[in-house]
Each structure stands twice: as structure tokens, then as C-alpha cells.
Amino acid sequence: MNKAKQWWHHNVSHNPMLAEIDRFRRKFFSFRGPNVQANGGLGLIVVLFLFYSIICIYNRGDMEPTGQLTIFLGFALFVIPFMLHGTIAGERERRSWDMLLVAPISPSQIVVGKFIGAFLGLLVTFGLFMVPIFVLALTYQNLKWGYLLLGILVVISQLLSLSALCILISARVKRPLMALAVTIGVVLVCFLFAPAFLSMLDSFTGKFVSNAVYPFAVILELANGQLRQINPGTESDYTPMVNPVLTSLTSIALQLVLTAALTAWAIKTLHFADNEVRFINNKKKKNA
């Protein structure tokens, strides 16, 4: 318990790298930056968001809100690699990495600080996306709020693991473009090819265990649960699983474990992947 407290104090509550939160905000959530592409991208997202909000408001009462979370998940899968591929690889490329290494911060503080900066940014974006979803939720008849909450948690856990994955790849790869290509490749494999393959296997076995590891399926299952609740007897495209709640919780737990593992891996990676520099390990000599 004491160790966990120390870890929290060192890496979260008293981590100087939390300054990354502000840098991330200025970089991705502000129009006053000098980067025209970033400003254009942000503008496009704002326009799409407004358009989507109008659709939601227009169809309030008819659209099932939980299933809408898959839209944000799809958006996140597409956008996160573009936002985070340069988190560490970019520092190496512009050679600002050395400045961080000579600062009085540990590799874990660097990784966790960058992770928190990125994740909080995504969380704020998700919060904004939730505004039209809540309009739908408040106007939808007999909504199972528990299912919506589970869906939200599934998305958040997915954001966590995606952020950790991007940071790990960025820490292991030297160039940002290479990091982007690898991240997109991994996302395609994990969210397109592997689920397709698993569902093919599932169709043979009839077990549908892959749904637990595939967040889109989990959210759609929750949405179908809502629909079945409202219109009993309605068959959805998805075969009901053992229990959508159990599957959601399994998915959340899996994503959290994955996040912890990927972050730990990224922290370890910093010891040897920093541009032919053998970083002095803070603990090694003290223990010797």
C-alpha cells in the first residue's frame, strides 16, 4: 500500500512532467498555434462535432444513446495515432529529448506525465462528445443508465489502452512517421483483422468469446440490450452474449491491465531506446 502511495506521489500527484497537460492543450486544443495543419484539423473536428450535435438534437428521443459511443470510439481510433505518434519519437527527432533526460525527472515520470497529458486531452474531448449523447439519453424512453455508464467506461478504458499503446510505440521507434505507421498498423490488426478473424472462429464455435476483447462489440451489445429491453422479442444482429454487463466489465478490466502493461513497457524502453545514449539508471548505482 505504501509502495502504491509512493508511486502515486512520484508519478502522478507530484510529477513535474504534468506540465505536459498544458503543452498538450496548447498544441491540440488551441487555434492560436502556428501549425496550420493542426489548426485546420481542429477546425474540421469542431465542424463535424457541431454537425453531429445537430443530428442528435434533431433525432432526440429516437436515437439509442449507448450505441452512439461507437462513433466516438471509431473517431478515437483514427485520431489518437495522429495525435500521439510523436509523443516521444518526436522529441527524439527534434532532439529535445536530451533536455528532458538531463532534467531531474525519472523515466517513469516522463512516460506517465506524457500519458496523463495525452489522456486528459482525450478525456476532455470525450466529455464534449458526451453532451449530445446526454441529450439523447435524457430524451430516450426507459433508458438503462447502467448500460450507458458501462459503455462510457468501456470507451474510457479503451482510450487509456490506446494512449498507452501509442506512447509505447513512440518510445520504441526512432522517427515519428515510423511510429505513426506502426501504430496505424497495430490498430488495424487489433481492431479490424483480429476481430474479423476471431468472430470467424466464434461463428464456428458458437461461443462468441471474442466480444469481450472487442470494445465495439461490447458497446453494441449494451445497445442491443437496451433495444431488447424496450422492444422484447426484437432480434438484433448480434447474438446475445452470456451477459452484456459481465462482458463489459471483462473488457474494462482487460483494457486496464493492458494499459498498465504497455505503460510499464514504455518506461523500461526509455533505458535503451534514447538515441545511442546510455541513460544513467538512477537506481542501479544507488543499489550497487
Binding site: P16, M17, R23, P34, R94, R95, M99, V102, P104
Partner: peptide, 30 residues
């Protein structure tokens, strides 16, 4: 690291921030 200031043979600056923001970032890290 608390006692040294290291300036490498390259700039390594964040170019998407303002001058004071850049310094503020490192001041908070230190």
C-alpha cells in the same frame, strides 16, 4: 541534474509554443 544547465550542440526547441511557454514548461519540470 538540479545543479547543471546543459546546452547541446543543437537547439532541440519545441517550435509550436511561445517563448514564455517553453521556459514555463522547463521551469515547472525543475
Amino acid at each position: 541534474r538540479r545543479m547543471i544547465g546543459y546546452m547541446p550542440d543543437f537547439f532541440g526547441l519545441y517550435d509550436d509554443v511561445k517563448v514564455w511557454e517553453y521556459l514555463d514548461f522547463f521551469a515547472s519540470i525543475y
